[in-house]
Write a protein that binds this DNA or RNA. Sequence first.
DNA 1: TGCCGCGTTTGATCCACGTCAACCCCGGGC
DNA 2: GCCCGGGGTTGACGTGGATCAAACGCGGCA
Lengths: 247, 247
Amino acid sequence: MSTDAATARLAFEVVKTACSNCNLRELCLPIGLPPEELRRLDELVSTRRRLKRGDHLYRAGQAFESIYAVRSGFFKTDVLIEDGRDQVTGFQMTGELLGLDGISSEIHTCNAIALEDSEVCAIPFSHLESLSRQIHTLQHHFHKVMSREIVRDHGVMMLLGTMRAEERLAAFLLNLSQRFKARGYSPAEFNLRMSRDEIGSYLGLKLETVSRAFSRFQEDGLLAVHQRKVRILNTAGLRKLMTHQRG
Amino acid sequence: MSTDAATARLAFEVVKTACSNCNLRELCLPIGLPPEELRRLDELVSTRRRLKRGDHLYRAGQAFESIYAVRSGFFKTDVLIEDGRDQVTGFQMTGELLGLDGISSEIHTCNAIALEDSEVCAIPFSHLESLSRQIHTLQHHFHKVMSREIVRDHGVMMLLGTMRAEERLAAFLLNLSQRFKARGYSPAEFNLRMSRDEIGSYLGLKLETVSRAFSRFQEDGLLAVHQRKVRILNTAGLRKLMTHQRG
DNA sequence: TGCCGCGTTTGATCCACGTCAACCCCGGGC
DNA sequence: GCCCGGGGTTGACGTGGATCAAACGCGGCA
């Protein structure tokens, strides 16, 4: 990334947070809102917050007050139980929401950690609720977002419950690919922001198994991997591997 | 809650569908609503629906219009993918909601099937949204319910991703036990409404493995099993097995 | 430039669970 | 009463992925 352009932008960037001039609004919460309602949304997002790679956005056990929209960067969420075991429950990228799990008990139930330098918009939840009482479309959209999270989780349960290692990794890569595509990036070539260990945790596999699956895919000409750089060479092959296989 | 009021209410129960005189309201959606708001909720639940064991409440692919509250009975939800694989994503009992997954795309993404003769209240979703725009507490409660579903799913992901067979079954049984208890039934003795195969599907195991785990628990004096009748003899033992074990 | 450390790869072995198969139990229909 | 069928149990065996262990490569730092 060009550093002087970046610094220049930063220098002039207005600190004021506003949805109405956010270039992510097609991905984020205000999706499809008419302009006048969009303007009312500006009062919603109170603050932005910058995080460096490795920083916690919130931790399990902390009081829940806001949900967060990823403006830039990449996150993981994980839960851990007493005996030391933990599991990555999701990876969040630009335009996706974090913190929905905290609503139920007013306490965050997982950790959210930046996998690269990132920026988020904090959305105080009580504000969101009161505004969504006034704006039907916002309310409905928010419900859809929560529901989509439930559907996504069902997909992961399916993956963990019925798929074998290579199918899981294929499904994971195709999902990432499609999300990068939706954000205007290449669906075929991208950098993984997470380690083999984190992928394994998310997929219910050990890091060695993930590594072996990557090697296998490379041997089979499905993709080219170099460290965290992935290029998908045969999407159809991955997709077939994901669904088919097994009697 | 005044108990004689409760019994009197039961004795005179009218067949009319109404939240305000439903004895489940401490479990269901209107939890904690003040009386006057509870009365307004009555307009919400339009119809009841009876189902026999094996009936579908809804099917994946059908248009989504309502969510459902279980009034009596027992349900499972499952998803299936092209190649024939399927997975049970949850079991729902009295007072729990069904259909939240359909909000995101206006289409149900899973099947809901009665595991015994059951009765549900249908709650047209658009009504719920409009009423929750007027009643803050209803809105907030609904958000909590959705969030709780997400948290529950994370728990299942944890289970599927990190636990071994006997730990999964122990976690499952303890969860059922606690839910029966919350409904005023014995937490120690209950009838399973689902087959070994359905338990296995939910837990990401084969039915033989579930069966063996049951036998093992019985050998170890943790519980007494006869067919679908389960009696928990050593809750602490189950809990220890669930968390501990594995380095 | 060379050293160090962490993330990754790869190989050898082990084991939990899946698979296949036989048998049992119980309930329902005739 | 008998038969039949579906769910459940149990055993023998196979295997996918975990575990253990070694070596590699790259980036950071002196």
